[in-house]
Design a protein around this nucleic acid. Structure first.
Length: 512
RNA sequence: GGGCCUCUAGCUCAAUGGCAGAGCAGCGGACUUUUAAUCCGCGGGUUGUGGGUUCGAGCCCCACGGGGCCCA
């Protein structure tokens, strides 16, 4: 690590490492570095190993809920926190300190309490943003503010950069690039972290309650599979082979089901080498689950219950408050439509798996939907659906029975020719989850992979590759199964209304 | 990939083509009950980078880079 601050190759003026030549540093950083040096010179360490903290600020607030103005207690405590406000009068100094979860408490330092030397040192050494330790009695100030009246104090950790203005929001770029600062100054940023943790815990609880087993499957894969997406590629030197970061765990979770882990789930990261915008991140967390002797109907119920439980866990209600101030209702059972049925209603003409490429292309032309060379009628119908119907899907809606052509890992519908037993779940017009009756016939699966290879040859960079080991596993016999996948970041977006960059703690940003 | 907007002090933002400013933060001083403390005084800028037009550019033009929004 570069604690001593080696200069990087091309430091921008805003991000000069603190160990670099002092001349280029902002004035306030120079001042704080000088204070650090002075503390060291005086033998008062700016970064002590530890301080004698006895209680948290939250515990003090809980223990003394109703002191009257001017009350003093015999409760002697050692507290620590980051200084977020300072009000220094001549012989009496006030500061508001904040601990990690945002709880704040006032500390007071008086001439009578700490003596002339320590009071002068406080005024000279403490800056906004410093971590300080204060020892003293719990009191209420004359204005009734719960406080610790110091008998001694100590720097717990000196901050060398000034905090941003606490009364204005950081710019969006600042929030994302320096999330640690965002977390210090913006309570909503901390709330998102807790909400996300609550959702993940709720999901695991829901799975465990239903007898599912959690597994972790490879992220580095020799072949990428389980979804249609462009992968990240890397190289393993020991074997001298190219590897891919996984785009989905599906083919490994199915191997688990073959092996007898009949109810299995994974919550983990996927990587897709595509653009980044308000609903897409190159790395994103995914929930995937498989259930032997289930179908796309049983996993639809599972998915609804997962989402409803998560909403209950973080909002206490299936009607959730979104960040824009509106409410959204996840309650009850959810609407189900079929892809071809909804598309036919939108177009005003019966469309089905048998509708010709020519006819579909006519509609596409009229709507300005681009037809790429590798599109078949199924893919084009799906594109038309996304263009015409998806924007109207506000309430939670299961869209069922997708074209076989675009669903190479899904079994054909038990009674309707040309479509597969697959649904997508839409919430506020974005895709939240997908579910299948899994294709378990290894011969048909091989045929589907071969068809995908032909698409790849025609230039579809998202087409799937043939995975012989996966097919071998299928040939040992996979029980009839239902499977579902849901984006965790999107689930957060769905139940909070936030953008994906707010739900991910450290989203990828271009280097400065 | 295309279009539009944006980048100014540590932070958030101003500034008809004509002396680069404010609030908070900082530095010096006053103040023993403050709550974004107050009062007096003072510093702080390669206006994203590089070109160009102009007597004169933060502002106009071009290129590049970062960010945002919309479209594909």
């Amino acid at each position: 690590m570069t604690e001593t601050g080696e200069a990087s190759e091309n430091p921008s003026p805003r991000q000069v490492p603190l160990g670099a030549d002092g001349e280029d540093l902002p004035e306030q950083v120079r001042v704080r570095r000088a204070k650090r040096e002075r503390l060291l010179a005086e033998g008062r360490h700016p970064y002590p190993v530890t301080v004698a903290r006895t209680t948290t600020l939250a515990e003090i607030r809980a223990a003394h809920p109703d002191l009257s103005p001017g009350d003093e207690t015999d409760d002697v405590v050692g507290v620590a926190g980051r200084v977020v406000f300072q009000r220094n009068a001549g012989k009496l100094c006030f500061a508001t300190i904040q601990e990690g979860d945002g709880i704040r408490l006032q500390v007071m330092l008086s001439l009578a309490g700490v003596g002339e030397e320590q009071l002068a040192a406080w005024k000279a050494d403490v800056d906004l943003g410093d971590h300080v330790f204060v020892h003293g009695r719990v009191i209420a100030s004359k204005r009734g503010e719960l406080s610790v009246m110091a008998d001694s104090w100590q720097i717990a950790a000196k901050a060398l950069r000034p905090l941003p203005v606490l009364h204005k929001e950081l710019s969006e770029e600042g929030r994302v690039r320096q999330r640690y600062v965002d977390l210090i100054v913006r309570p909503a940023a901390r709330d998102v972290v807790r909400t996300r943790a609550g959702v993940v815990r709720s999901l695991r609880d829901s799975f465990h309650d239903r007898g599912f087993t959690e597994v972790e499957t490879p992220m580095l894969q020799v072949l990428h599979g389980g979804a249609a997406a462009r992968p990240f590629r890397t190289h393993m030197h020991a074997f001298d082979i190219d590897l891919y970061l996984r785009i989905a765990p599906e083919l490994y979770l199915k191997r688990c089901v073959v092996g007898g882990i009949e109810k299995v789930f994974e919550i983990n990261r996927n990587f897709r080498n595509e653009g980044a915008d308000s609903t897409h991140s190159p790395e994103f967390a995914m929930i995937e689950a498989y259930e032997a002797y289930g179908s796309y109907d049983t996993v639809a119920v599972l998915t609804r219950e997962l989402v409803q439980s998560a909403a209950l866990a973080v909002h206490g209600d299936t009607v959730v408050a979104l960040s824009d101030g509106t409410e959204y209702d996840f309650g009850g059972t959810w609407e189900e439509i079929t892809l071809y049925g909804a598309l036919s209603r939108a177009i005003g003409e019966e469309i089905g798996p048998g509708t010709s490429m020519e006819r579909l292309s006519e509609f596409a032309g009229g709507l300005g939907v681009e037809v790429l060379p590798h599109y078949g009628p199924g893919k084009l119908a799906e594109e038309l659906f996304e263009h015409l119907v998806v924007p109207t899907l506000f309430a939670p809606t299961f869209v069922r029975d997708y074209p076989e052509e675009t669903s190479p890992l899904t079994r054909s519908h038990r009674s309707i020719p040309g479509v597969a037993e697959k649904w997508d779940l839409y919430v506020r017009s974005f895709e939240l989850a997908t579910g299948y009756s899994e294709l378990v016939d290894p011969v048909v699966q091989r045929e589907r992979f071969v068809a995908q290879s032909l698409l790849a040859a025609k230039g579809d960079i998202e087409a799937m590759r043939l995975d012989e080991d996966f097919l071998r596993a299928m040939e040992y016999g996979m029980p009839p199964s239902g499977g579902m996948g849901m984006g965790l970041d999107r689930l957060l977006m769905a139940i909070t209304g936030l953008g994906i960059r707010e739900t991910i703690l450290f989203p990828l940003v271009k280097p400065e």
